[in-house]
Design a protein around this nucleic acid. Structure first.
Length: 242
DNA sequence: CGTATTTGACCGGCGC
DNA sequence: GCGCCGGTCAAATACG
């Protein structure tokens, strides 16, 4: 890792020009295998940029990924969870068409009207009561199609040899795709907690395969389910986020 | 044997 | 309308 100087958290908040497809993207570069507190960042980018990023315990990257990474890092993000655009989680306001999707779509639907200029006037909210179980995928699709709602995303660019970084949550892979003009596939993960629809995807940077880009979408409605046994590992990072 | 991953099918958006 | 492309589903398979 280049310089472990904390300053290394050269966060380069990076504004996408094509925000349309990527409403809210921030890139952060981390030194080597320092892990990233993904959700914490969702609370506010500010918080994140001031992260004391000097890796307290530099671990060899090539070793057991999911264990080493982030053993001391945690995050909780459930302080201002649910409720859509309320207290402006980070820069939600920036992308006009952002809502909390899926389950909340319906509610949002009924409560808001100016959503990125979608034209869906007619059959808009005939049925905005939530049906949880047995809801056909069809229905979901319809909703999705009708309102192309995209949850805010957060991207982390990390120098790491391991693809998937342990962020404290449990993920199940549900897909993998090769993307055009890249040699490395992109894999898709979903949080395993039920009722939590947070997704993330992991890919390697085409230009520099040593870089991993992790993109989170949505926010957890629960705390990380990583076994909390390592709670005695007091790291500055730790209480920084709690 | 229950759960996670793999992997091709499928689907919807978008540009031509 | 068609085909490409990214994202997701889900059956089959691997894993423990």
């Amino acid at each position: 890792m280049a310089s472990t100087s904390q300053a290394m958290l050269n966060q380069s908040l990076f504004e996408e020009d094509h925000q349309e497809s990527h409403p809210q993207v921030g890139f952060f570069s981390f030194p080597s295998n320092l892990t990233l507190p993904p959700l914490a960042c969702q609370q506010s980018l500010k918080t994140f940029t001031s992260l004391p990023c000097d890796a307290p315990n530099p671990q060899p990257p090539s070793i057991n990924p999911s264990e080493t990474l982030l053993s001391s890092l945690k995050h909780r993000d459930n302080q201002d969870q649910d409720h859509f655009g309320g207290p402006h989680l980070l820069s939600l306001q920036r992308s006009s068409s952002n809502l909390w999707a899926w389950g909340e779509v319906n509610e949002c639907l009924s409560s808001k009207r100016s959503c990125g200029g979608d034209d869906h006037h007619n059959h808009n909210h005939n049925h905005h009561h939530h049906h949880h179980i047995g809801v056909s995928a069809l229905k979901m699709k319809k909703i999705k199609a009708r309102r192309k709602v995209r949850e805010p995303r957060f991207c982390f660019k990390t120098m790491s040899e391991v693809d998937v970084l342990d962020d404290g949550y449990k993920w199940r892979k549900y897909g993998q795709k090769v993307v055009k003009n890249t040699q490395h596939p992109r894999s898709y993960y979903r949080c395993t907690q039920d009722n939590c629809r947070v997704k993330k995807r992991v890919e390697r940077l085409a230009e520099d395969p040593r870089m991993v880009i992790t993109t989170y979408e949505g926010r957890h409605a629960h705390s990380p389910s990583h076994d909390m046994e390592d709670s005695q590992a007091p790291s500055q990072l730790n209480n920084f986020f709690w």
